[in-house]
């Protein structure tokens, strides 16, 4: 099974909240110093899902990422987990694209790669969390899409997906090629180990520009974007703490209960 995984490099979500800074003027996040960006957590699980399919069914995993030249690191990370090759899609025209623009760039790269059975994406990016790219990409590629997968199985010429729904899960099948977006319930990604970790490090990741994949300037024009950021702010959280007392533990519990009753 030949699988293409789309991954994104994001600001490390594990940075201390107090260190998260934005610039409201340019409506952009200011990355804190000395913190390397990481692979988006859901995308890492998509790579894990691809590796599990490869472990069972053999085949090839190709990873692509729209981003800066630093995005080679996340491709290397995916290769160290078990992917075979990868490409960075980097061009000034690709900067600050919305979900539609990103999906368009990915679709052009996928068309350039050629034959594939399955495209995997994370359910959403760990930074903006829009969760749109996967579905739009499937639309452009004109293939079925199944979102929020927690288990993926290849069955003959179909893909069978267990997907999360609000009250449990459902099992859906679609013919190959299809696109599946992967949720964190699929399980912990493997720790890159062994040979791959050392080899991935030395690998040179090819960079594709707009002209390499035949992306049209009109499609990338910011003026044609479907979404616009009108404002960016860090939400403020207010925590009030009150210690409920009482002469006895029983009385304290009663006081707490009446306090809670009043709140509701």
């Amino acid at each position: 099974m030949n699988i293409i995984v789309c991954v994104k490099q994001v600001l490390d979500p594990e940075i201390p909240p107090a260190k998260f800074k934005i610039d409201p003027e340019t409506k952009q996040v200011i990355p804190p110093p000395g913190v390397p960006p990481v692979i988006s957590v859901y995308d890492e699980r998509a790579v894990e899902a691809a590796c599990r399919l490869k472990d069972k069914l053999k085949g090839k995993i190709t990873v692509i990422s729209v981003g800066s030249d630093k995005a080679a690191d996340v491709i290397k990370h995916a290769i160290s987990m078990g992917a075979d090759e990868g490409f960075v899609l980097c061009d000034p025209a690709f900067e600050n694209l919305d979900s539609f623009g990103t999906a368009y760039v990915l679709s052009k790269a996928i068309q350039k790669i050629g034959a594939y059975d399955l495209v995997l994406c994370g359910r959403q990016a760990a930074d903006w969390g829009a969760g749109q790219v996967g579905s739009i990409l499937a639309e452009i590629l004109a293939i079925p899409v199944i979102t929020l997968a927690c288990d993926i199985e290849g069955v003959d010429t179909n893909v069978r997906v267990k997907r999360i729904v609000s009250d449990g899960y459902e099992i859906v099948e679609a013919p190959l090629p299809s696109l599946v977006t992967v949720s964190s319930e699929i399980g912990l990604p493997r720790l890159p180990a062994g040979v791959r970790l050392m080899m991935a490090r030395k690998k040179v990741i090819p960079v594709w520009k707009a002209q390499d994949i035949g992306a049209e300037a009109s499609q990338l024009d910011k003026g044609n974007a479907h979404t616009e950021i009108t404002g960016l702010s860090v939400p403020t959280r207010k925590i009030e703490c009150e210690i409920i007392t009482g002469a006895t533990p029983g009385e304290a519990a009663a006081n707490l209960a009446s306090k809670l009753a009043n709140l509701i």
């Binding site: 594990e14 201390p16 110093p33 000395g34």
Partner: peptide
């Protein structure tokens, strides 16, 4: 990394 540390390296 993560919740265990409230600081940045530098």
């Amino acid at each position: 990394a993560g919740a265990q540390s409230l600081r940045l390296r530098g």
